[in-house]
Every structure is written in structure tokens, then in C-alpha cells.
Design a protein around this nucleic acid. Sequence first.
DNA 1: GGTTCAATAT
DNA 2: AATATTGAAC
Length: 331
Amino acid sequence: MDLQELWCCGLSILVIDNNCSYLSVMEDLLLKCSYKVTTYNNVREAMPFILNNLQRVDLIISDVFFPTEDGLLILQEVTSKFGIPTVIMASRGDTSTVMRYVANGASDFLLKPVRIQELSNIWQHVFRKQIAPSTPAGNLEQPYPPPTAMAPSTPATSRTAAEASAPLESEMRDIDNNGEITDIRDLKKSRLSWTAQLHRQFIAAVNLLGDDKAVPKKILGIMKVKHLTREQVASHLQKYRMHLKKSIPTTSRDGATLSSTPLKTQDHSSRSEYFDQEGCMEITEYSLPKDYLSSGSECMLEEQNDYSSEGLQDFRWGSDKQEYGPFFWNF
DNA sequence: GGTTCAATAT
DNA sequence: AATATTGAAC
């Protein structure tokens, strides 16, 4: 089915370029690829927006701003801290320049004029970030079920330069090098909150499996979130499918996500924000409520899921206070 | 006997 | 409204 399209269609992309006319061009192209687009013509104004919308910006495309190198600023101030994939674009770039940006965490370096084909595929960097962090080397369940026909190009194999870049300290609690939550079990709440990021990981797992194979247990295995139970995944899957049924009554569409059918922004306005996009930090473990903490049951549960503690991050119980600002997930 | 799904409970 | 739990079906 079209779960994959559903996932990448609503991604929010922020474009920064001091050339306003080119900004419009980019916006137009991105909208045609059914992304949501926000534009800024300078970094000074864009930065606060980014910081205030860390959960909602999926990808940043910024001009290199040579020679001021504001592009590098974004990479260092935002991408390396918060893990938002950033693509740099420039009208020209020699190898050493490209290398420098990539080494500083750029997910890609595009030469202007950027073609729509490149943009239609740009979502892969969001996807990459999502599946790479939790897969250091051979941590992934070995062979996935043979990639379904539409499986994403190169999943999980190589880590991007971004991950190699030096992590900057973040004063936020329980955030690790890649800007992911690593431990939060002290936050008490009786129910799991499917944060945007947790949902993303869920979607990534579903996509990886393919709709037919996407059943709770397999999804759980791929998500590799400690303490997350199959039942919770099942529950969420149930809701997710319900949503799909509601928002996409027609199942057949042209496979091409680009060019032929320029989708307007309103196309996905009928869908919920939550299932379309939203993003936050990577989550890999989640804590059990109350009683399990002190008792030995916790370890038992970990083993149940057959996850080793390492390589897993922590996933938190929903809390009113999110590190990176409020969420909106109205269905 | 374990897993999934739909319904129902909180 | 969102998540958890239940119970029948597979």
C-alpha cells in the first residue's frame, strides 16, 4: 500500500536562502513534492524559528551562505545538537568545501540549481537519521525481511558524517550525543505517550516491514525501544490503521510522488498533523510506571523483549513538559 | 501457546 | 481523545 508515501509526504522542510526569488523556487518545488515548507531569507531569523520548532522541523535546506558560512553555523548550532538533518546547497562547491560541510554534519550538499528529482528524494535523510542512530554497526535485526518493492534505497548501512561530528553539550536532561533521549524513567506517568518521535520510529519500522508484514511483534523488534510492549505497539498500530482508513479512502495512486501530480499543501491538511509529520528526538527505551522500577520485574521485561540494554535508548512516559517545546497532535 | 485484531474499558 | 486491556479468532 502507500504507507511509505504517507510517511514522507507531510515532512516539514525549512529552507533558508538569502535569495528570495530562489527561495520561492525552492518552495514551489518542495510543495510539488508534497512537503510542508517554511522559508527564511536569513539565518538570523531562521534560527529562533528552528529552536522553537525543533519537533516540527524535519529537515533544513540551507544555502551555504558563502563566505559568511552561515550554513556551517546551522550545522553546528542546530544539526549537531538536535539531530535535524540539514542539506546544504550552493551554486558551486569544490570537493574540499563539500567535504568540510559533510564533515560538519551536512546530510547532503546540493548544487544549484536544485532539481525537483533531488528534492523529491530528500526525505531519505530524515529517514536515515531515524533508523541509523539506533543501529550502531550490527545492532539491527540481521536480515530484514527482504525489502519490499518500495523499500528505501540504502537503509542503515552507513552512518552519516553527521553522527561522527562532535556532540555539543546540551543542558537538557537525558539527551545523548545524537540528541536522542537516553534515559527518562524518573518521569512518572501512568500511560505511554506516543510522542512524535516515538511515532516516527514506529512508522519507520512499519515502512521497513511493509504493510503486510507490519504486525506488532515485528514492529516492536525493529523499533528496539526498551520497555515498550507489544500490546502498546498493537494499540498504536490499531489507531494508526484506523487513521489510514479514514484519511485515505482511496488506496490506489500513481507511484510517482513528484512531477506529474503537484500536490498542494492542502492535500494533507485533511490528514492529522500527527500521522503526517512532527518530529522530536530519537527514543529507544521507555520506562515502566511505578512498581516496576524498584522490583526486579524491570529486568525481566527487558529480557522478554530480548533487547540488550546497550544500543537502546530510553523512551519516556508522556509528560506535560517536553524538552523541546509543546506538541500538537490533534487527530 | 503465542499472536493479532476488534471491541471495550479507563 | 489517547492508550490499555480484554477476549475471541487465527
